[in-house]
């Protein structure tokens, strides 16, 4: 094939750094995690005993783990649904040709740069049970003064709000960018033909927007599953009573607090599977269902 350079050693030299880093920090740990997941490792001696699939069995039947899975799903559904629906609504309503898009991009995008831990800190301040302005507002409006450091359901809601907030501007900016691909003429033509705004949205705008929606869906899901450790650690540390204990937090507890490496490795493997499913979904569906403008 043309456009190639001859070279015997050079290509290997060029590849070496990437391959070395990937092998040492990705492949070896992955294989090691798989191996450890079949062992019961003593926290005191570090000695492992082969137990087969017992770790997985224990996880599947464990109340705590199932609870953590449920919390993670609730959390992820909350963050993704709230984040995507909210930002899509805003972006679509705003989707007239906007001369000031660049300016809005600047003022909407920055929370994406915030670390989840810092975002968590700021929201802990806003929801501070005695002086936080959101608490004060809630108290004034509803007369209730729930304390999210005591009330599990409320704690989960508060962390979802904090996590969603960080991605909201990012979502809006990408929806707005995607909406620039929707031909104005098409929508106007549909309206002339008597299609209502809702119909125009579902039949024209939404399908054309689907690549961006899909991109954001994957981004937000991965974020909700894996990136919010810092936020949870800062705000609730998994509490109260495990109400916000997402899977990554559970893993951290078992691995580094209780030093149960076997069971923690089995959790890693299950997380691997979940990431794998999300990745596959992304590569499979992205090519097919999605309408490219």
């Amino acid at each position: 094939m043309e456009g190639r350079f001859p070279g015997r050693i050079l290509p290997y030299a060029l590849l070496f750094p990437s391959i070395a880093v990937i092998a040492v920090f990705l492949l070896v740990p992955a294989v090691e995690a798989l191996r450890l997941s079949f062992f019961e490792v003593s926290p005191f001696t570090g000695h492992g005993t082969f137990v087969g699939l017992a770790n997985f069995g224990e996880l599947v039947s464990s109340e705590i783990y199932r609870h953590s899975l449920k919390v993670t799903l609730l959390f992820a559904v909350g963050v993704v649904a709230l984040g995507l629906a909210g930002s899509l609504a805003v972006a679509v309503l705003a989707s007239l040709r906007l001369p000031g898009f660049g300016v809005y991009r600047a003022v909407l995008l920055w929370p994406y740069a915030l670390s989840p831990a810092v975002a968590g800190t700021i929201w802990a301040l806003l929801f501070d049970p005695s002086t936080g302005p959101v608490t004060v507002l809630l108290r004034a409006v509803t007369g209730l003064s729930p304390n999210w450091m005591m009330d599990g359901t409320y704690a989960l809601a508060v962390t979802v709000v904090a996590a969603t907030w960080k991605m909201l501007g990012f979502n809006i900016v990408f929806f707005l960018a995607g909406l620039q691909a929707v031909p104005q003429e098409l929508r106007e033509a549909a309206q002339v033909d008597g299609a209502g705004a809702v119909r125009v949205f579902w039949r024209i705008t939404f399908p054309i927007l689907s690549p961006v929606t899909f991109f954001l869906f994957v981004m937000n899901s991965l974020y909700a599953f894996f990136e919010v450790f810092g936020l949870i650690d800062v705000m609730t540390q998994g509490g109260p009573g495990g109400a916000t204990e997402i899977l990554v937090y559970r893993l951290y507890q078992d691995a580094f607090i209780s030093a149960r490496w076997g069971i923690a490795s089995a959790q890693s493997i299950l997380l691997f599977v979940m990431v794998g499913v999300l990745t596959l979904l992304q590569f499979r569906l992205a090519g097919r269902r999605v309408v490219y403008a």
Binding site: I22, F25, V28, P29, A33, L36, S265, S268, F272, T279
Partner: peptide, 21 residues
């Protein structure tokens, strides 16, 4: 193959064994 099969394994997921390494 080796590079692309690893496309997405977040640090959070492989954290313990990477720690060992």
């Amino acid at each position: 193959w080796m590079i692309f099969v690893t496309l997405m394994l977040p640090v959070e997921v492989r954290i313990m064994s990477t720690y060992e390494v």
